[in-house]
Write a protein that binds this DNA or RNA. Structure first.
Lengths: 341, 341
DNA sequence: TGTTAGCACTCATTCGACTCGAGTGCTAAC
DNA sequence: GTTAGCACTCGAGTCGAATGAGTGCTAACA
């Protein structure tokens, strides 16, 4: 039994209706609300076929059908292929975002707020991965006689800082000299590259406290995924959807959001696509089996990119979400890239 | 009708039982489970009196009684007066916290996690208010030809940074010189004091871009409460309690947590007490009318303090929470104060 | 005078029987 | 291939009786 055009049109109508109403949709609804020119009986036969093909599920025999994950997959693939992106969202993203470019962190969390506000889903905004960032300046700022603040400015305006121990024989001017030297050597390189260069240098000057401190810090930046900044928005939005009116399910969902490591891992597996859509079980997280995750990337430069995403019920308004993510991605690239020149 | 010792003992038993079980407690329960040496009928008479005094409510006539906000208030005041603080919690806080003192931000969020993990409630950890912090070092780090990163190191190891525009005629060395000068002048003063000093300086050198940038930034640090860092932990813990099995109520609660401004405002009204306990309506936030907020402070120095707190249902294990907050406050003072010398 | 046993009364909760209706699957006719 | 008709299914909602926890009151008791 093949999947012809009519079946597809009916499936699409079912999905559209279910996304809107969240109640299982019956054959009569389709034949009345959507101008098919077919009677409910015919729709019924087609729906039976679609169920056999695995595109529809039936909660119980006397209810309508609901789309399966496979159906959403088909639906989304179709959407992605046609590239239907409303342009109206770009301007509304712009409006809500405001133009003030502040610190990376502020931008990230603001973006998460806007994203969840516009979509009514839960949003995720992740800064670029640490190890891909290019170093621009390294500066040691004296904090006390024994320690200094290590500030690393990277492209995108992100800065990472930590306090390291230095030898007590270094005063402000000495630190400044070291800073200049380090900046000269490492500027323009990625964190990963800088790390290998430092390892060479450490071999020449063993037990140099400053070098050790810097190396150690870069090491954690590279290795530790949790160093990536992740902002969430609209975490309680999920409760607006009837599929999460069960408190137990809601708890599971919210618990996942609390352990950011899982989320970061999820967002990192992005591949080279402009968009990634993971539907239900495709997320790989049991608690999210009734959720979909849509992600997109934004670029700061050729090699550094961050990820933004939206989590909602599988019956998500994929078209709208994709369009908004697209607009937000562009906006972020613009805002974060602008103070780069 | 006075409130005698026996009434108080009975009230205490009722509160203890209700905190544990969350079900209205009847006269028979009290006379059996708690060794009162009184029959249920006597208890019943006393409970009737307690209700008349406003300490007990009755959901409906054939159910037991539940403590009113007034009852919890009495209970807590008694608790605070007796200063019952189990010492066991101090060590468990220490165990969970770990000794690694990292950046302020990490410590804050770690503390929130530990706090919610130990109490099973939602925790709040707020860094000290910006304007109370003492400046230790000011450093300008070149970022591009037009802009510089302004790093301000304060006591407690907190650092605030932002990118400011500078005149294009300033190279790295010039910025360094300015940094030294600023550090020399402002070190040891609070943000508020520094601000007034800078205003004097600005009058002498009008339109100086660096001075303007620094002033503007300190201004936002002082004025903008949202600059205060606030970490939350265990936001979904509230769903474990039967009083929040209603999704609508849970949504209201979680929505409040998302707008951090309200929370910061709540935590700031702390007064000079070691602990503050706000019960139900005392929080002043309608969505939290069935919640209690317990806060405590930790100190970095004489003038700078941060706030930690726990939010849970009004039937909270106040004794335990107070004890844990006390331990955590000490721990935080220790960890954040230690790199101060 | 305080305490207790006894008893009638209240009322949320539980459970089963019942109805209602949306929706299906199947068959036969078009 | 499409459609009308019809029997059938089954979740959701309603109603009412039974249940039982808990109270308030009264009268007896120490």
């Amino acid at each position: 039994m093949p999947m012809d055009a009519r079946k597809f049109r009916i499936l699409q109508a079912i999905i559209d209706d279910y996304i809107l109403t969240a109640i299982p949709v019956g054959s009569r609804t389709i034949s009345k609300k959507y101008e098919m020119g077919l009677s409910s009986a015919t729709i019924r036969n087609e729906m039976s076929d679609l169920e056999e093909l695995g595109y529809l599920d039936q909660p119980h025999v006397s209810a309508g059908r609901i789309p399966s994950a496979k159906a959403y997959r088909l639906y989304v693939d179709q959407l992605l292929q046609n590239g239907i992106l409303q342009s109206g969202d770009a301007s509304s993203v712009r409006d809500h975002f405001g133009s003030r470019a502040r610190q990376m962190e502020d931008v990230i969390s603001r973006a998460a707020q806007v994203l969840s506000g516009l979509t009514h889903y839960t949003s995720l905004v992740m800064s670029p991965k640490g190890k891909e960032l290019h170093i621009r300046t390294i500066q040691l700022v004296p904090v006390s006689s024994q320690s200094a603040l290590l500030v690393i400015v990277t492209d995108g305006g992100i800065m990472r800082d930590t306090v390291i121990r230095v030898g007590s024989d270094l005063d402000s001017d000495a630190l400044y000299a070291i800073s200049r030297m380090l900046t000269e050597k490492l500027s323009g390189h990625t964190v990963t590259e800088a790390l290998s260069m430092l390892n060479v240098a450490s071999a020449a000057h063993p037990h140099h406290p400053v070098l050790e401190g810097v190396t150690e810090f870069l090491d954690t930046v590279e290795g530790d995924a949790t160093k990536t900044k992740l902002a969430l928005g609209g975490t309680s939005n999920i409760l607006n959807f009837p599929e999460y009116s069960d408190v137990e399910k809601a708890k599971g969902f919210l618990s996942v959001l609390e352990t950011k490591d899982k989320l970061i891992h999820l967002l990192e597996n992005h591949g080279e696509m402009a968009f990634t859509v993971r539907i239900g079980p495709e997320t790989g997280i049991p608690e999210l089996k009734d959720c979909s995750l849509v992600t997109a990337t934004y670029r700061l430069s050729d090699n550094t990119h961050g990820t933004i995403g939206v989590i909602g019920p599988t019956r998500m308004q994929y078209g709208r979400v994709l369009s908004i993510l697209n607009a937000m991605g562009q906006q972020l690239s613009e805002v974060l890239g602008q103070d780069k020149e």
